[in-house]
Nucleic acid binder design. Structure first.
Lengths: 219, 219
DNA sequence: AAAACCGTGTAACTTTTGTTACTGAATAAA
DNA sequence: TTTATTCAGTAACAAAAGTTACACGGTTTT
């Protein structure tokens, strides 16, 4: 959908860094479109070439690493409003295929920049690169944290942290999800997750209901 | 040690991308020094501020994530000749303290750029940013791989891959290391590593000797 | 040479995680 | 309302990883 006023406002509100440079903003508005995606939409497939660069305005997306062959995957990090998919950008620049999968987690509005134009923008405006650079940095640190917790913590701690992050990002205390879904995100099995959730409930960190998990205030 | 000819040659040989821009190269030569570090030197401490940006000319360095409190750590990736410590660069830009530790693994020659001057270089020359950007990208992918193997593989596979990477980077088939050292790198315990090494030996992948491990050609 | 130390081997046990197999409750569909 | 279907619970077992404890062969130090 082409609505320049909407795109312009979206950049002003969610990408103030890009808005500080009027020429850059004008170019972005000119070449991009705004799209809505429903939860569950795969916006980037592992192994695929990059056709567009997305800027998330509202909603939430998740980025996964898939295991080759087997159908397993791990959640790497989230894409929040005001962020883009850094892997798309760098993969595009290096003309590789994507190493990760990105899935819309909550209905989202996204400013879509066609790949070739995004490359031109990157060449023309250092500000754009600064933006990407910062984002890249942020995600790098998030990966470090995943490695840290995978190496030094047990699954129960990882699980609790996952639940709290989900609750925080979705701004609710009750998560509508299934044990199976959590198992997919964490690269584990449903039975293990059920067992650990039960333990967390007994310890008072959460309350379990059918298809829902409530996070308590216990620290 | 200040030796402009040496620095100039080092940049030509190991950082050809930076050498393509004569002005950038000239500035780098002007502000930097060449240093030798012995194996074991900690060139970047976790939690410390960044004072210099290193460019590795020869030798090898390792980058670790340390567990807060406990003394445990995990190997994240290596810094090879022709590379710099990306975390130094981004940490410097954001004026944060380092999230990682970097240790010289094999006696190394390093071109040292003082932090403030490095910031000036980054502002002045887009080429420098391109270089960092590519490096960042590379390390990002290496982190992805660590997460992948931590999530989907067992320790024996991780161990074998570690041994092979070490052998490749150090260009020898016999690694002079101890089981304890490997345990530190992989964030495990000596006994577990001993057990798994014995298993790998029985399977024909390695030969064990006192203080040394020989990697065989078995695939 | 005796003592101390380091690196390794390994048994026995515990904890954590994964797997198999089956049950029943809750919800949606026919 | 009956029938599927999805989701959750859980026991029992297996495998992987961590822990404790100790033995032993080399070095190195005294």
């Amino acid at each position: 959908m082409k609505n320049n006023r909407l795109i312009s406002e979206a950049i002003d509100s969610y990408f103030p860094r890009l808005a500080t440079m009027p020429a850059l903003k004008a170019d972005l508005v000119k070449i991009s479109q705004i799209h809505r995606f429903e939860a569950g939409t795969v916006i980037l497939r592992q192994g695929a070439y990059i056709k567009v660069i997305p800027l998330l305005i509202s909603g939430l997306a998740k980025v996964f690493k898939e295991e080759p062959e087997e159908g397993n995957e791990v959640l790497l990090y989230y894409i929040k409003p005001g962020e883009s998919c850094v892997m798309s950008v760098t993969t595009l620049i290096r003309n590789q295929t994507s190493q990760v999968k990105a899935v819309i987690e909550e209905d989202s509005e996204v400013v879509i920049i066609p790949a070739e134009q995004a490359l031109a923008i990157a060449k023309k405006y250092p500000k754009w690169n600064e933006f990407i650079y910062d984002l890249f940095n942020l995600k790098f640190e998030e990966l470090l944290h995943v490695i840290e917790i995978l190496t030094f913590s047990k699954k129960d701690k990882r699980l609790l942290e996952y639940l709290r992050t989900e609750a925080k990002l979705k701004e609710r205390k009750v998560l509508n999800t299934t044990h199976q879904q959590i198992a997919y995100d964490l690269g584990s099995s449903r039975e293990v997750i059920s067992r650990l959730l039960k333990k967390l409930e007994q310890e008072g960190y959460i309350h379990l209901r059918q298809g829902a998990i409530e996070i308590t205030d216990k620290i």
